[in-house]
Simulated assay, not measured.
Amino acid sequence: MDAATASTDQPPPPGRFARFRRRLDFLYHADHPTAVRFQSWVAIVDLVIIAFFVLAPVLQEKRYFLWLDYSLAALLALDFATRALAAPSLKSWAKRPVIWVDALVLLTLLLPAMFFNLGFLRILRLWTLSRKDVLWRSLRRRGLQAWEEAGRAVINLLTCLFLATGFIYTAFVAEGSGIEGYVDALYFTVATMTTTGFGDVTLPGPAGKLTSVVIMIVGISLFVRLAQTVFRPYKVSFRCPACALERHEPDAVHCKACGHILAIPDEGSD
């Protein structure tokens, strides 16, 4: 085989667009220091955006609110498009629930007047942020997997809390309703979820009572469970010497995967 024939058998070099997609894939998914720095900056921007979502009910009467809203919409649209380009398979990427949430959040930003009543769903961006590996990578390297579990539980707890608060503020805020501001909605949500039930702030009408019932049920089940995960993790990190399973119940004697006898140290022991 001569040199001319060999050269025709080689695949053509990737074009500019393919190289651009590879670069995005590297920045969004690689473990290289350059990629980690990029992912960290993206996470910081996400935190700023989430802070805006939390403060949106207070800022929505300001003149600059729509400017901020559309500026963040453009920023999220750019991030959404670049993540789509960075995905090895666009079809698989589009099937992920995290992407659906981000698309819904972006829709409420692009059309704030039409989807104003769904604006409280923007806090779900906090949950999608917790799915990013860059937040937990350093903890895993230091062997602090328990902190990762607690961190995820804190984020889920805050998401649940602000999601319910945003819905109550959007649906029930009115003069004489008992919910006259965002702080009232937050206070009612915490009092109801924790089943404290002071009763000084209540939701009016049958819809308000049904909403209170739902929040109390969520508080008993999800809220309490997440709070327990923060302060007392359901499982501990202990590597099984036989099968390498790393998550076990604190009082486990045998590995549930292979049956090997474990020797998990008691809490607080060296």
Score class of each variant (00 low, 15 high):
Gly151Tyr: 00
Ala6Tyr: 03
Trp41Glu: 01
Leu75Glu: 02
Glu267Lys: 12
Tyr70Gln: 10
Leu161Phe: 13
Gln228Pro: 00
Val45Leu: 13
Leu24Glu: 09
Ala3His: 08
Met1Tyr: 12
Ala6Lys: 15
Tyr28Val: 03
Lys62Thr: 13
Leu126Gln: 06
Gly178Ser: 04
His32Thr: 09
Val236Glu: 05
Ala171Glu: 10
Leu107Asn: 01
Leu129Thr: 12
Ile49His: 02
Leu76Tyr: 05
Ile220Trp: 14
Asp69Gly: 01
Arg21Cys: 15
Thr34Asn: 01
Arg225Asn: 13
Val36His: 08
Pro250Phe: 05
Tyr182His: 11
Leu161Cys: 05
Ser237Met: 09
Thr189His: 07
Thr108Val: 06
Asn156Ala: 09
Tyr70Lys: 12
Phe198Ile: 12
Val54Asn: 01
Ser7Lys: 15
Thr192Ile: 01
Cys258Ser: 10
Leu72Asn: 04
Val190Trp: 06
Leu75Val: 14
Asp2Gln: 05
Leu121Met: 14
Leu135Ile: 11
His254Gln: 14
Gly208Thr: 05
Arg142Ile: 02
Leu75Phe: 04
Ala191Arg: 07
Arg225Gly: 13
Leu262Asn: 14
Asp31Phe: 10
Leu135Ala: 08
Pro11Gln: 09
Gln39Ser: 07
Phe167Ala: 15
Phe80Val: 02
Gly268Glu: 03
Ala35Gly: 13
Ser92His: 11
Ser138Asp: 10
Trp41Ala: 05
Gly208His: 01
Asp9Glu: 13
Met1Ala: 10
Asp25Gln: 09
Leu111Met: 13
Met193Trp: 00
Leu72Tyr: 15
Val48Trp: 09
Arg21Asp: 04
Ile217Met: 13
Ala18Gly: 02
Met114Tyr: 11
Thr128Asp: 02
Arg22Ala: 14
Arg63Asp: 11
Ile99Lys: 00
Leu222Ile: 10
Phe198Lys: 04
Leu106Met: 09
Leu85Phe: 12
His254Leu: 14
Val98Asp: 10
Ala84Pro: 00
Asp31Tyr: 13
Ile168Trp: 00
Leu186Asn: 06
Ala103Val: 12
Met1Ser: 14
Cys160Asp: 01
Arg21Leu: 02
Glu249Cys: 06
Glu61Cys: 05
Val134Leu: 08
